[in-house]
């Protein structure tokens, strides 16, 4: 009896360990697999050429990723520039100023929308943002824009990541102990001063973590961007021009992947690039957070 129980315990322990090691191993498996797949093109063209040239003629064997990389960076940059301040202002208002009723209503709406799939945001973007840019905004700045543009992609992405950022930020801000706020107020600080000097400062690590997650999400988003970015392989000259980020490149061309030489390797290189940048970014931000934590404790 006892023997069979101990045996079960041992089996369970091994199973749990195996599952854990396997789950950790996924990360390395994904990285390794994509790296191996993209190795042929890296060896043939050289990493530097791939990253810095922007000629893209798969049939002639030209694979330059520069415009895709820049498109990705533009789109992500615009999304964060729009989303972060709005999310910060909103979540501070909801946590610090709004009544409990509004807090409850707002947090359920945010939770709801954080779960809405990217493709829905894409549909919405094509129906509203794209025509709006084409008809109402772009004419003030450029001669012509279809609306499928860097700006459209950035705005749709921003709206997509806003619920995500807000739901994390609300948690972060409400984790600041009440006593800390009261201590500041009792020293004669106004509400706003308390928010600025105590709440926000105390929440910096959380804000960074939320931003990192939002950037990761925006950086690799595929369908929502693909539907509104225009998919045009040239360096965008203004935010009203079409662009072509890396995830969209992969998604649009996987069909021909097997029929053109080196195409598979090129697209897998794009996937590896996304993977590598995200991992690097996450690890670095983690190190930064650890440093901040240390400084806070001192």
């Amino acid at each position: 009896m006892l023997k069979s129980r101990l045996l079960k315990d041992r089996i369970a322990r091994h199973y749990m360990l195996t599952a854990t090691v396997m789950a950790i191993f996924f990360l390395f498996l994904i990285g390794g697999g994509l790296f191996l797949k993209s190795l042929p093109i890296m060896q043939e063209k050289g990493l530097w050429t791939l990253l810095t040239t922007s000629n893209w003629r798969p049939f002639k064997g030209d694979f330059g990723f520069a415009s895709y990389i820049l498109s990705t960076l533009y789109v992500t940059g615009i999304a964060i520039i729009i989303a972060l301040p709005l999310s910060l202002l909103t979540s501070i208002y909801i946590i610090e100023y709004a009544s409990p009723k509004i807090l409850r209503a707002f947090s359920s709406v945010v939770d709801l929308l954080a779960g809405i799939p990217p493709v829905i945001y894409g549909v919405w973007g094509t129906l509203t943002i794209v025509p709006f840019i084409s008809k109402s905004i772009a004419p003030h700045f450029v001669e012509f824009s279809t609306g499928y543009s860097v700006l459209a992609a950035g705005v749709v992405l921003a709206i997509m990541i806003i619920p995500l950022i807000i739901s994390i930020l609300m948690e972060v801000f409400s984790a600041v102990p009440k006593e800390m706020r009261e201590a500041s107020m009792s020293l004669g600080a106004t509400k706003w001063q308390t928010v600025k000097k105590v709440v926000i400062r105390k929440s910096i690590p959380g804000v960074i973590a939320a931003t990192v997650l939002a950037i990761s999400r925006a950086f690799g988003e595929t369908l929502a961007v693909l539907m509104v970015c225009g998919n045009f392989t040239d360096l965008p000259k203004s935010i009203f021009d079409a662009c072509y980020p890396l995830p969209a490149l992969i998604a649009n061309n996987y069909g021909e992947m097997m029929s053109v030489p080196q195409y598979e390797s090129a697209l897998m290189f794009a996937a590896f690039l996304l993977f590598f940048i995200i991992v690097l970014f996450n690890v670095i931000s983690r190190l930064v957070l650890i440093q901040i934590d240390k400084r806070y404790q001192l």
Binding site: L27, L29, I30, G33, V212, L213, I250, A271, F275, I278
Partner: peptide
Amino acid sequence: LTFDVLFGIPSIVYGAF
């Protein structure tokens, strides 16, 4: 840390892999 990184990896990368 590994799981946090995996959490941030774009779905297109999972698809490609």
